[in-house]
């Protein structure tokens, strides 16, 4: 008999997460932006962080991306060689190198993440040049490949992003980050401010890239629809704290916390 019994239940084997945030705290004077935030992220997972304005989700992202130093807590990242390093215990050159190669940051406003006066090709090629690529033809070829991947006409490789639409600028920003094959991408409202049809296209692209490249990503958004589409897991933040966390479809279809229930009930269908 091949029965299932409670005594058969095995403990889940431990796998080192790609990123582990523990007890993150950040205050701005008397304002508590993040309080004791903890979560982990494994390779290939997309984690959605949802919350309304003031929830602390952007502060969280800024701390994790090392733009802000947290007041307490640890941010541990597993490097390519398997060692685990704490983000703020690293030397600044090491951290900068990490940000430039193994991590990507997609800003809400693509203008914050692009060089507007420089051609699309140069924007995409910059990370390669920053780590020593010195063959113009190869850099250009790489840039063209990535433009294709993000569905920007390759003919526009020499145009500056100033001449692009918002959606194209955002896709260029993604290409600029992904060219160095990062293992972790942080995204802050990647579809914010874009027209609905443009959003759909971008989300589809992000879904595809995350799955094709096995990217781990943290997507901060206030839009539950975006979260449902992109994220495998979801954390809900409110007033600086995580109030609920779990599988995306479970959090959205069976919300436990009163605030999550409120959020979910507020979506226009």
């Amino acid at each position: 008999m091949n029965d299932l019994s409670l005594t058969d239940v095995a403990a889940t084997p431990y796998e080192t997460p790609l990123l582990r945030v523990s007890g993150l705290c950040k205050n701005f004077g008397a304002v508590v932006a993040c309080r004791n935030v903890s979560f982990a992220l494994w390779p290939g997972e997309v984690l959605g962080v949802v919350g309304e304005s003031g929830s602390g989700k952007t502060t969280l992202l800024n701390c994790v991306s090392a733009r802000l130093q947290p007041d307490a807590g640890r941010i541990e990242f597993q490097l390519r060689d398997g060692r685990v390093a704490e983000l703020f215990e690293m030397s600044e050159p090491a951290r900068r190198m990490l940000m430039r190669t193994d991590w990507g940051i997609v800003h809400q406003n693509p203008r914050d993440g692009l060089r507007l006066g420089v051609s699309a090709g140069a924007n995409v090629g910059e990370r390669l040049m920053a780590v020593g690529a010195r063959h113009y033809g190869e850099i250009r070829g790489n840039a063209a490949d990535w433009l294709r991947k993000v569905e920007i006409e390759v003919a526009r490789i020499d145009d500056p992003p100033r001449t692009f639409s918002g959606g194209m600028q955002q896709r260029l920003q993604i290409a600029r980050n992904l060219v160095s094959r990062p293992r972790l991408v942080l995204m802050d409202e990647p579809t914010g401010g874009l027209d609905v049809s443009v959003q759909a296209r971008l989300l589809d692209l992000l879904r595809g890239l995350c799955s094709e490249l096995g990217l781990a990503a943290i997507v901060v958004t206030h839009d539950l629809g975006v979260a449902r589409l992109l994220a495998h897991r979801l954390t809900v933040m409110r007033r600086g704290e995580i109030v609920e966390s779990g599988l995306t479809d479970q959090v959205l279809d069976d919300p436990q916390h009163p605030y999550t229930q409120l959020l979910v009930a507020s979506i226009l269908q």
């Binding site: 600044e92 050159p93 900068r96 060089r115 420089v118 051609s119 090709g121 140069a122 090629g125 910059e126 990370r127 040049m129 920053a130 780590v131 010195r134 113009y136 850099i139 250009r140 490789i157 020499d158």
Partner: peptide, 18 residues
């Protein structure tokens, strides 16, 4: 200090592209 000279090469790249 960090030998962060990528942007200089961006300038050269731009010249060659243009």
């Amino acid at each position: 200090a960090l030998a962060d000279y990528g942007p200089m090469y961006v300038r050269l790249y731009e010249d060659i592209a243009q």
